[in-house]
Amino acid sequence: MTDQQAEARSYLSEEMIAEFKAAFDMFDADGGGDISVKELGTVMRMLGQTPTKEELDAIIEEVDEDGSGTIDFEEFLVMMVRQ
């Protein structure tokens, strides 16, 4: 866990972390443990947004600390705390 990830967790109660985990699992449609650009786009479109591929890439790049091209749960928490 990076310093950013530990800091993000410090702002959240266990209840909030559990709620974010449920949301993360909804995004992680294939159950792979991370959110891909495609999965992020699908959920955002379900919520009425129309992000471009470039916008989706930028969202993932902003929090993808390990350079995997996807968002894992710890990175997702950082993203949610920043919102």
Rank of each mutant, 00 (worst) to 15 (best):
M1R: 10
M1I: 15
M1V: 10
T2S: 14
T2A: 14
T2V: 07
T2D: 15
T2F: 02
D3R: 11
D3W: 05
D3L: 13
Q4D: 04
Q4A: 05
Q5Y: 07
Q5A: 08
A6D: 15
A6L: 09
E7A: 08
E7P: 12
E7N: 06
A8K: 08
A8L: 13
A8P: 12
A8C: 00
R9N: 11
R9S: 10
R9T: 02
S10I: 08
S10R: 09
Y11F: 07
Y11H: 08
Y11T: 12
Y11G: 10
L12I: 06
L12N: 02
L12E: 02
S13R: 04
S13P: 09
S13N: 11
E14K: 05
E14G: 05
E14I: 02
E14S: 07
E14N: 07
E15N: 15
E15G: 06
E15V: 09
E15Q: 12
M16I: 03
M16F: 03
M16C: 07
M16H: 14
I17M: 08
A18C: 11
A18D: 15
E19H: 01
E19W: 02
E19G: 09
F20I: 07
F20N: 01
F20T: 04
F20G: 03
F20E: 00
F20P: 00
F20H: 01
K21G: 02
K21L: 02
K21E: 05
A22G: 08
A22Y: 02
A22C: 04
A23M: 06
A23T: 11
F24K: 01
F24E: 01
F24N: 01
F24A: 00
F24I: 02
F24G: 00
D25G: 05
M26S: 14
M26A: 14
M26P: 05
F27K: 00
F27N: 01
F27D: 00
F27V: 08
D28L: 04
D28P: 07
D28W: 01
A29S: 10
A29R: 14
D30P: 03
G31I: 03
G31M: 03
G31F: 05
G31K: 10
G32V: 07
G32R: 11
G32P: 03
G32K: 03
G32E: 12
G33I: 00
G33E: 05
D34R: 12
D34Q: 08
I35V: 10
I35H: 04
S36T: 13
S36I: 01
S36H: 04
S36N: 02
V37I: 15
K38P: 05
K38L: 12
E39N: 12
E39V: 08
E39A: 09
E39G: 04
E39W: 06
E39Y: 13
L40T: 04
L40F: 02
L40Y: 06
L40V: 11
G41I: 11
G41H: 14
T42N: 10
T42S: 10
V43S: 01
V43I: 14
V43K: 01
V43C: 15
V43A: 05
M44L: 12
M44A: 03
M44Q: 02
R45I: 01
M46N: 07
M46I: 07
M46S: 14
M46R: 09
M46A: 09
L47A: 08
G48Q: 10
G48D: 12
G48C: 02
Q49H: 15
Q49R: 12
T50S: 14
T50W: 06
T50G: 10
P51R: 13
P51K: 10
P51A: 09
T52Q: 13
T52G: 12
T52P: 09
K53W: 03
K53G: 06
K53M: 07
K53L: 07
E54K: 05
E55V: 10
E55N: 07
E55S: 06
E55K: 10
L56K: 01
L56W: 03
L56I: 15
D57F: 10
D57T: 10
D57Q: 14
D57C: 10
A58H: 14
A58D: 03
I59S: 02
I59E: 03
I59P: 01
I59C: 04
I59H: 11
I60C: 08
I60A: 08
I60F: 06
I60P: 02
E61P: 04
E62D: 14
E62N: 06
E62G: 06
E62Y: 10
V63S: 09
V63G: 07
V63P: 03
V63L: 05
V63W: 14
D64G: 11
D64N: 13
D64R: 13
E65D: 10
E65V: 12
E65A: 15
D66H: 14
D66V: 06
D66R: 08
G67K: 12
G67R: 08
G67Y: 01
G67I: 03
G67N: 10
G67E: 12
S68N: 05
S68R: 09
S68E: 03
G69M: 05
G69Q: 12
G69P: 04
T70P: 01
T70R: 13
T70S: 11
T70H: 12
T70A: 11
I71N: 00
I71T: 02
D72P: 10
F73T: 00
F73G: 00
E74G: 12
E74M: 01
E74R: 03
E75L: 09
E75R: 13
E75H: 10
E75A: 08
F76D: 00
F76E: 01
F76M: 03
F76R: 00
L77P: 00
L77G: 01
L77N: 01
V78G: 13
V78N: 13
V78I: 13
V78Q: 14
M79F: 12
M79W: 03
M80E: 02
M80A: 09
M80K: 01
M80H: 03
R82P: 05
R82I: 03
R82G: 14
R82N: 06
R82H: 10
Q83M: 10
Q83N: 05
